[in-house]
């Protein structure tokens, strides 16, 4: 693999050919926020939190490969405000009741809200009507919290490659659903994996919850992305 030279906010960086901007930035100790992206999964580029500017154009850093001489804008006030706006939109278009959520403290959407100091969304709350499905043996599907990142759709398959999760409808009516027969046969490990993959509290493993005390959860003490910036 050949080495590539590029800059992020003026800082000279090196990357490998084939790397996405998000991956290359991480190797250079620069955090670009992501939400729908999950390491090891094929990037979907659906949430646009990772939007950067290259040559005056907006690009999703999770899907765009780095190229030689690329000049990337990342932490500008314009981009940071757009990112904050996306987080706010995600908060108002679902029913995100953090105080009652099992994922609170470990939720990536909430952690991004903290990182961007979201005190109140600038958009009106929509309070959509969404259905909760607690009828499956191992998992609860709480659609009020879903951000349509497609992580579960992309990653959760049976041993013979069948997809357990899928999206139904389009636009504002889009929601996750499961193949009930496949979901009924999920193991405890698969249920845990699905819960861990979900960036919010939309997929929950049954019969556990609030295991880690407040103060010791993933994003209680340090902002999301600080582990990359420290390295």
């Amino acid at each position: 693999m050949s080495t590539i030279q590029f800059t992020i906010d003026g800082k000279p960086c090196t990357g490998k050919s084939g790397q996405t901007i998000v991956e290359a930035a991480k190797d250079n100790g620069i955090y670009i926020p992501t939400l729908c992206h999950f390491e090891g999964l094929k990037p979907a580029g659906s949430c646009r939190i990772c939007t950067v500017k290259v040559g005056g154009r907006f690009m999703a850093a999770c899907t765009t490969p780095v190229t030689e001489g690329m000049v990337i804008e990342n932490k500008t006030s314009e981009l940071e405000d757009y990112r904050k706006a996306i987080i706010e939109m995600l908060f108002v278009e679902g029913n995100h009741m953090c105080p009652t959520c099992e994922k609170s403290g470990n939720c990536e959407l909430q952690a991004l809200g903290y990182r961007y100091m979201m005190f109140v969304p600038r958009f009106p709350y929509l309070f959509p009507k969404r259905e909760l499905d607690a009828s499956l043996p191992k998992i609860i599907i709480e659609r009020n919290r879903c951000v349509q990142c497609l992580r579960c759709v992309r990653s959760m398959t049976t041993s013979d490659g069948k997809k357990i999760f899928g999206m139904v409808n389009r636009g504002g009516h889009i929601h996750i659903n499961v193949d009930r027969e496949l979901a009924k046969n999920m193991s405890d490990e698969q249920a845990q994996k699905a819960m861990d993959l979900c960036p919010v509290g939309s997929i929950l493993k049954k019969e556990v919850g609030f295991v880690v005390p407040i103060g010791k959860r993933k994003y209680d003490a340090m902002p999301i992305g600080s582990e990359i910036e420290k390295a």
């Binding site: 009741m97 105080p99 009652t100 709350y125 309070f127 959509p128 009507k129």
Partner: peptide, 18 residues
Amino acid sequence: IAVGECAIMGGLPAMRNG
């Protein structure tokens, strides 16, 4: 000043909104 989640977004009582 709106103090707390309920003042800001309805909070627990807003779970009846649907």
